[in-house]
Amino acid sequence: MPDIVLRSNDGADHKISASTARLSRTVASLLQDLEASKGEDAELLIVPIPNVCNCTLKKVLDFCEQQRAFDDLVRASPAAQQPEVTRKTQAWRETYMKVSTDELYHLVMAAHYLDVPGLLGLCTDAMADHIRGKSPSQVRACFGLKPNLSPEEEDDIRRSNLWALS
């Protein structure tokens, strides 16, 4: 398959193979439209991605490439080596997800917009990890939430969630 160029909203180009880009369902449908209008013989397709900035797009493409390599590896390797491959991918994903809350936010929005199935799940899990193990006041401080519950409501919630607080 020929290479294509993805252009982020700040004008940076990323050249990748079309099969990798197709991991994003949004890009896949955009490509279909572009190919239909330009014909097969167009030399280099440029797909604008208006909602994603350069560094986030790079991060998303990293994931796509890794995912692609992983899929190939699974297909090529014998059944006995499968757990090894899975373990390696797990480790790679763990380091991949070591990002700040802000980056994670941009990443999750990009994954949602580009519709990359595996990435969205990974991001929401990471978001959940940011919440996990924090008390309500810590969550509020971490995400800048305003405590807008009235005292009666707070009392009521505390009572109905007593099982979790004890």
Partner: peptide, 22 residues
């Protein structure tokens, strides 16, 4: 996305999260 995040939280965390804001 928020619902997806909540779906990957355990019950206890969910109950605590309910205490943060409306």
């Amino acid at each position: 996305i928020r619902m997806l995040i909540l779906h990957s939280l355990p019950a206890k965390e969910l109950a605590l999260l309910a205490c943060t804001c409306k």
